[in-house]
Nucleic acid binder design. Structure first.
Lengths: 225, 225, 225, 225
DNA sequence: AATGAATGAGCGTTCATTCAT
DNA sequence: TATGAATGAACGCTCATTCAT
């Protein structure tokens, strides 16, 4: 029996192609922009090149994003800023020890951000942030502060439960963030070390750093004396 | 025995004065360029601004350096590449243990490079290297390879003397370089961590990393089992 | 005898509704275009904005008018050029003195054109005519020449009837037109005089100017001596 | 006897040409800009065309004026705004009757502004002022307000001396300004009247209007009843 | 008939580099 | 040697117009 799909198959592909295109455009542009921003940096990426890589003309890019800066912000939200809601939920739902939570946190960060192109955005902000203050502020608001906030809540949970010593939380945040930042920079710097890839096992490195941090967090500050 | 310098000092005082001034110009330009390159990056630094900071006109800059790229290369040679001769000599003259040599090496690197503006050049190359392949290659030739070469000779000395285990030298080089690179990136990235300065004691960090590396180098590979 | 309209009204109510809507579209577009052209000028008015104000999409605008220039021409015909037929008929039907005809002419011009948005079109042509020669020529053909022609016939009637002295008609036309043009410019120029509106009573001004012109027309040229 | 000029003639022309050029550039650019702004309006005048008419390249224009808007402002100051100081001085120095002062004022205005290209700037502001609010405000501050201010002082002098009736000065200002504005618009509008030039004698028109205004100013307001 | 996504020529502005002085 | 006026290629962004649906 002929299903409606049979008929639809005849007509829809045409429309479907168009409509899918329309809805896919922003995504394609964001993907192309992510690629190029990570590859060349913000200033050196030309709007026309982003459009070309997404398979559209220069004008089309500005149909979806009013300026290159807004395009960049959208890339940041798409790949980093917009995902904290989900990550915060994971935090709320986590039921294990806080040490495990921190290990899990650093591991999935690597899988979802660190090893992906998205990590290039952080390196980009470190390189060009001073040249584009508005982007820097946006990045701080959308990524840095939520990230610090999440870590702060994790650490606070550990302290509240008596799992961690009552350390200086701000300082501890840096201890956690530092290896992540280092990995992002390392990964995107094929300059100093020709085979940066092979010379460092990121997951092992991260695991080691996690244990180091946890060692410092769990040790009773008074007990050392 | 009269050196050629004695003779030159006598008959060309006028010329000497002139040449000193003439020779001072490039130095002022190089200093201004270093400042600005480190502050804003290569692409974002305008030639005119370099000239202005050096107190000369835009044309004068191009009188001494035929292009912005050549200016950058000169900055690299002045601050990094040109100093390996001296560092190599220090290596040859060093008489202590190789472990001390490595400790010394990392410490003075921090004093002479890491904590100075020159470290910004490395971060710059990591950020913009892909956009300026010729500069990247130059940097590799003038800085990366000599640096690796020096470390390689140090490590080889340790192995040859039986102080170090016969490790994979390339891998060991990265183990030494990594913390240095990390410090340079950290220092020049005011983005993720608002107070990068206060959250990490570079010298302590470096000393710790040195001991970690040395621990791996001195441990008998077979003895671990 | 049944007219075609009778037939059409009966069997095509659906079509009629459709056609009325279809026929209403250009009118809405013309109204929106008039508003915006008068407000911002020809070049500064964006096609998309006209469409948006008429409640249709950009594409629809170009369905009815093949270009922005043609749209403008249609606006000119709708508001100025297409009305001369009626005005000429009024002239033919007028039965009073030619002086009264001229007074009437200037008064109703103010009511029907001068005080309406349509007067902005004249100001627009004065401002942008040199940038759009084809529009300028069109405006001359559709508005200026018919207007001058009508005035010429009025003046000729006065002379033929012995009501006016046999003046130089071209010169007299300018005498009549000048105050009208002045009022249009004045009305649409909020720049020099902040309260252009309140500082001049257009109808009184026009009446005065009419009398001045008529005084010149009726006075026997020889009698002045 | 050979004068120094003989020698100078050999060397200076080269330098002179250069230096004269440098100093002449802004003037040449302002002249070209005035021409084109008056001819085509602000928006329709392309920066490159201004440069070309001044005999320089596009980049050179921006060496002297940081933006097209600033170029326009400079044109306004050069041709209108910057001359009020001199005009104010003439007012202070004038020793005749205030009626003569007003007549003189309108006459020299025509010679120095009205009949020159500068009058096109006023027409331009009337046409495009709403599209460029910052330019409009600048023009108001630099031209409209000083102009009104000067007229206000003239009228006040007449009233203070008992030459004029104590009229509403704001209203009187418009009565004086209106014919000037009209002439500027008329002059730059070759649209409605093909031969605007020949159809109106500006000086005679202005003189007539001056007398009309003066008639209103000198008539005792109470005496009319 | 109506849509609106897509195009691409065009403009304002920047900046490394040149060269006459 | 030193200057700085001049250049022109390049980029971000706009908008009238087209066309597949």
């Amino acid at each position: 029996m002929p299903t409606p799909r049979f008929f639809a198959d005849k007509i829809c592909p045409v429309r479907a192609k168009r409509e899918r295109r329309k809805e896919a455009r922003p995504g394609e542009l964001l993907a192309a922009a992510l690629d190029l921003f990570v590859e060349k940096g913000f200033a050196a990426t030309r709007a026309e090149e982003v459009a070309a890589r997404a398979g559209v003309s220069k004008g089309t890019l500005f149909l979806y994003f009013p300026s290159k800066e807004e395009l960049f912000k959208a890339v940041v939200v798409e790949n980093l800023g917009g995902r904290f809601a989900e990550w915060n939920d994971e935090f709320e739902a986590f039921e294990g020890t806080t040490a495990d939570m921190l290990r899990y946190c650093m591991r999935v960060w690597w899988e979802r951000v660190g090893m992906t192109k998205a990590s290039g955005l952080t390196k980009l902000m470190m390189s060009e942030g001073t040249n584009f203050p508005e982007l820097a502020e946006f990045y701080r608001k959308e990524v840095v502060r939520p990230g610090h906030s999440l870590l702060r809540r994790i650490l606070q949970r550990g302290i509240d439960r008596g799992e961690f010593a009552p350390v200086d939380i701000d300082h501890a945040i840096y201890a956690v963030v530092a290896p992540m930042v280092f990995l992002m920079l390392w990964k995107h710097s094929a300059m100093v070390c020709v085979d940066a890839e092979t010379s460092l096992d990121p997951e092992k490195y991260l695991a080691t750093q996690a244990e180091t941090v946890l060692y410092g967090l769990t040790r009773q500050p008074g007990a050392a004396a």
